[in-house]
Nucleic acid binder design. Structure first.
Lengths: 146, 146
DNA sequence: ATTTATGCAAAACTTTTGCATGGGA
DNA sequence: TCCCATGCAAAAGTTTTGCATAAAT
């Protein structure tokens, strides 16, 4: 994990210290490509550095959310959120409602809509999350066992 | 709340019973226009009909989520989800990251993208959630008190 | 009549807090 | 050196379960 990471830049720019807890959580998030529950972050951090406390992990996840680095989203059927990395302020995926697998995609073509909303609502928009729900090919084929 | 509600149709069609717990939760969701936390649903249901148990409210929220009637989303800074009504399978809003106010909007122009994703990924898409994050006009004007 | 769904109350988790101490800048 | 951020451990919430009973169909 190099200190050139744009996320580390965000932290520094906002005046936050680069602590072990924060760097470790960031490392875990990047290693998982950003689809991970708090419980899993907790477990991974514990494994990498048992000296880091539970509370710091939660405080870090909250900070990263505030900074727009990650975004909690509901994916698994449990009530605990899954955090997705907001690369460049946005994130897009398709979730299979059967098997919970997800497919990320990049181009969303929302520039026009973003501009319209900024003009209409007067909100300075900094990012977005776009989720599609559906049933993937595998679940449609294999999933006839009702 | 008439039994003509499309949400009630969904329940019936899927073979679920129209119980007091379900109808009351649905009533609360509709009255709040669908931006409401579990704690608030709990409180409102309790107020309307104290005989309805906590567990049934959670079971109902989970069922409605499965049926695509609502979708939990993380808006408040607390980790508890806010449920949004998925009218017709989709929902769009802009959230102010400062004051947490939200602005809903209808047209998202995602038909083309939906079609492309179905073709490319082989996923049968049934709905979507589109969230924008930003700072609203009020918070930009009044929010200089840092 | 048949089940499905419920209420209850306890158990199981998850997240948050307060405070003395340590580690970045 | 200074003060932000941490670890700890307990408290505070929130969600889930198991099971006998009620109530939809």
């Amino acid at each position: 994990m190099s200190e050139q990471s744009p996320y580390i830049q965000s932290l520094k720019r906002a005046g936050y210290r680069l602590t072990q807890a924060r760097l470790t959580v960031l490392h875990v998030l990047e290693a998982e490509h950003g689809h991970i529950t708090s419980a899993d972050v907790l477990a991974q951090v514990e494994r990498i550095n048992p000296a880091i406390g539970r509370a710091s992990v939660f405080r870090t996840l909250e900070l990263f959310t505030q900074l727009g680095i990650i975004r909690p989203t509901y994916i698994s059927s449990s009530m605990t959120p899954t955090y997705v990395l907001m690369r460049g302020g946005h994130h897009h995926h398709v979730i299979c409602t059967e098997c919970k697998r997800f497919f990320e995609f990049d181009d969303c073509d929302l520039e026009t809509l973003t501009g319209n909303l900024q003009a209409t609502l007067g909100v300075q928009i900094s990012g977005h999350l776009l989720e599609f729900y559906g049933v993937c090919a595998d679940c449609r084929v294999g999933g006839q066992q009702s």
